[in-house]
Design a protein around this nucleic acid. Structure first.
Lengths: 171, 171
DNA sequence: AAAAACTTTCAGAATATTTTGAAAATTCAA
DNA sequence: TTGAATTTTCAAAATATTCTGAAAGTTTTT
């Protein structure tokens, strides 16, 4: 029953990963494909993923492309094979960095732009306008700060936070 | 046309806030109510919010409760008034901290729990199982690290990162 | 150049989430 | 108490998102 036990655990992992992902704005199937590839020592092609997760070809194709956009999986061309194979980044620290990087780009970037856009053309010539501009400016500042913090956390492995992490991670 | 200009900018702010929020897992109406209250110097009651955003009573009620759960707005009981009034936290730094705190709780917590749960009862007695456990353990470690990092960032205003931020924010 | 192998697209179907609004529950004043 | 004012709930409707699968597009082999 040992093999079955592992299979069950893997299924549970894939299912859980899919469920959790929806909590943080990623769709279930994309997360499940990611989980499947994370657990697979070999790279897989679209047909294998379709069969494994019981989902359509279109769905697999679209989510594989999204996962590549996120930088979480790579395309692998096997010699003598026409089909495209996919393999997940297995270094979890790289995976986490990549997710953080993408979320920064997708969540913080647009916020900064939007605030700049809203400020445009408004003069602080009344108390009401001044109050409004204060809020917009404060949001700008917090966003830029969050963006910079993320960037510096991600950029340098010399950073004390990262070092602190590596200590924990390697033990 | 100065008053109109401000009204337009506020509407744009509310609309934009709502659109961006959906990108990061918060529903549009909740974000719009939050934006409306952020921009309002007075506290507002459910009827006023309904009229302003043209949404139903049930929707307003549900999202006000969610916003209170997130710690982004407060209930205010005005003397001589039966209706409940709501006011948003205006200190954007506190708002950002609160959002980060909630997201940590909602996104990282369940991940840590899930990984612990999956590990349960699996012995590393084959290479395959060992491989599987390595991934699960690595995700655990990254999650715990992210959780701790967030916590320490949020907990102490003595933290260098926060100080660094305050310098930027106050200038 | 044709055909086979494979990938991508996209309109409609299925599913999931959000919203409505009226009924039920609660609170408060008289 | 009673009943008017207000808030909460929740089933059904509206809306938004995701998924399917067949058709169109692309690449490679023969």
């Amino acid at each position: 029953m040992s093999v079955m036990e592992l299979k069950e655990a893997k299924d549970k992992f894939i299912h859980t990963w899919g469920t959790l992902a929806t909590q943080w704005g990623i769709n279930r199937t994309m997360a499940q494909i990611h989980a499947l590839l994370l657990l697979s020592s070999k790279s897989m092609n679209a047909d294998e993923i379709m069969a494994d997760l019981q989902i359509s070809r279109g769905n697999v194709n679209m989510n594989l492309r999204d996962l590549m956009d996120w930088g979480l999986i790579y395309k692998q061309l096997l010699p003598g094979e026409r089909k495209e194979y996919f393999i997940a980044e297995k270094d979890i620290w790289k995976v986490a960095k990549q997710i953080a990087k993408e979320r920064r780009r997708r969540e913080i970037g647009p916020l900064i732009e939007a605030m700049e856009d809203i400020k445009e053309g408004i003069q602080p010539d009344t108390a009401e306008k001044e109050e409004f501009l204060k809020i917009v400016n404060d949001i700008s500042k917090v966003s830029v700060f969050a963006d910079n913090t993320m960037t510096s956390l991600l950029k340098s492995d010399e950073n004390w936070l990262i070092n602190n992490f590596i200590k924990i991670f390697n033990k």
